[in-house]
Design a protein around this nucleic acid. Sequence first.
DNA 1: CTGTTAGCGCCTTCAT
DNA 2: ATGAAGGCGCTAACAG
Lengths: 335, 335
Amino acid sequence: MPTINDVAKRAGVAPITVSRVINSSGYFSDETRQRVEAAITELGYVPNRLARGLRTKRTNTLALVMTDITNPFFTTIARGVEDTAGEAGYTVTFCNTDESEAKEQKYLDLLIQQQVDGILLVPARSTPSSVNYLQKHNKPVVVLDRRMPGGETDVVRCASKEGAYHLVRLLLDLGHRRIALLGGPEGVSTAEDRLLGYIQAMEEEGLEDFKELVQVGSFTQLSGYEMAKLAISLSPRPTAMFAANNFIAFGALKALQEIGLKVPGDLALVAFDDLPPSLVIFPFLTVAAQPAYEMAQEATKLLLDRLHSDTEKECQEIVLPTELIVRQSSGGPIK
Amino acid sequence: MPTINDVAKRAGVAPITVSRVINSSGYFSDETRQRVEAAITELGYVPNRLARGLRTKRTNTLALVMTDITNPFFTTIARGVEDTAGEAGYTVTFCNTDESEAKEQKYLDLLIQQQVDGILLVPARSTPSSVNYLQKHNKPVVVLDRRMPGGETDVVRCASKEGAYHLVRLLLDLGHRRIALLGGPEGVSTAEDRLLGYIQAMEEEGLEDFKELVQVGSFTQLSGYEMAKLAISLSPRPTAMFAANNFIAFGALKALQEIGLKVPGDLALVAFDDLPPSLVIFPFLTVAAQPAYEMAQEATKLLLDRLHSDTEKECQEIVLPTELIVRQSSGGPIK
DNA sequence: CTGTTAGCGCCTTCAT
DNA sequence: ATGAAGGCGCTAACAG
């Protein structure tokens, strides 16, 4: 493969001149530009970004470390990051951690080795350790989707507590009192916030006995399935369920179908996260929808800002609202 | 950030010795290994892969160039590629072309610049130009999901024609004669193969007058919506539709719902591509399901094989079968 | 406007 | 078992 030197020789100039033409930096006459460009196309020259990055300490690469790109929420996030980064001339490396801290650590190391310019991180656990690790290595980070204790970093996330509150409030207003929470894992801020929103709504209504109605699981269909089965076995049976994310909701629906309980006839169901319209045949679930694409845009812009501004700015926390979308699964007033 | 030289000084050895320890290459005593490892952790040293890649000409990076990661089919592909590549110590860069040849070309150039070791390509158009371009730059390629004329490259894809044939055969066996094809774009092999499967089944049945029933669109929900509306306006109205992919099917369903036609009561519908179980609440569509994850695994393995074997092997074309999954949307026998 | 020199961090080659 | 020299391809810094 031809190098910048080959191009330089062919064009009868010094390598640095070729460099200037490629990068439109510094001065060069129109005539040299033409000679260089001719040489480039004749040789089929393609610049080597490794060498450039070694020299300039910049790679024009970002990374998105998330839990699972298979979840449409993160698929949309990924697309938003790629589009926004792409416009600015950056490529994106995607990593799935499956909520495992070990995998996350492994990927972060790899990304540092690869000299990515910055990282968008959906932390597996809401502890500052991974952010600290990145900052120790001078890697700009923006935390996405989840809160971070400490606040020494930029965060872009959704108002999970408020969204959860509105969903439960809706159920309460319909007359439900026994509302089960099919929750996410401990140590994950979105799961915790959705629990807090649930508690706030319940307590505001003067309900206290909801401890047995609250379940802790993981953000998977299987977990939703299992939690729903457990919730149904309580007596008196809950009249409504709040699923802490989309996968949990799907698992719960599967469990209810198996048992023969109709939604919303026998049981109301609301959930966090909407599906993109392109994936839904029958819009059915009442949800708190997160603006995933906008979150990704904001986070990427914030990260790019950090990369391009020389002055240190204050850390920001951008919290976007959720949208309550009422469909059939929440049903009508009961009793 | 510390370099290999800093580690070397601290450990009292030469840089090359540190290199040997890091890469477990060549000889070194157990004692030096310990001293080097100590120095590495004390300094928090992380090797620079740009420098390594510049020297070794290998980056341990692959790229997956596809049309749109938002499509669950490609999401699954992406996950399969990442998992398989990850096991072998490779990271993956993802690129969305949105079926645009210009975007594809832009990304391929970028990937060559970034010195990725190999590329998994879902070509926007089934012409050999992009593959030729990559081969000119000595970049190993495996074409994924779509055929390639010429056959100078490895291909991993599904038996689209056969899958389409079986779907249409199913409709014919149920008594349908007016079967509309809501097809994908010209120049894309999967779309063409599904058309061929349709034609084969129709002609085998002795049907000839299906020209007006065949539509050419794109693999999007909007296109499916539009094609369905057109198909319905034909007279006599088709009694069944075959959607060439999942998005087209969803668009068609939306159109039918708007018009007030019930599936399968008023009209049968079958489609290519299943959704992963985690995304489906009510399994409803009769489909030809593609083994996306396995396709990704096979393609990635093939690419890694090419990278690691010194001898040139024959090009392979791996064609995986689709699975016919009969659900409600295809309905029962008619007339 | 163009060129020279040097070095980014690492590993290949060859020597000891 | 370890090290010295050199260079991968590019650009920063300085010179002219």
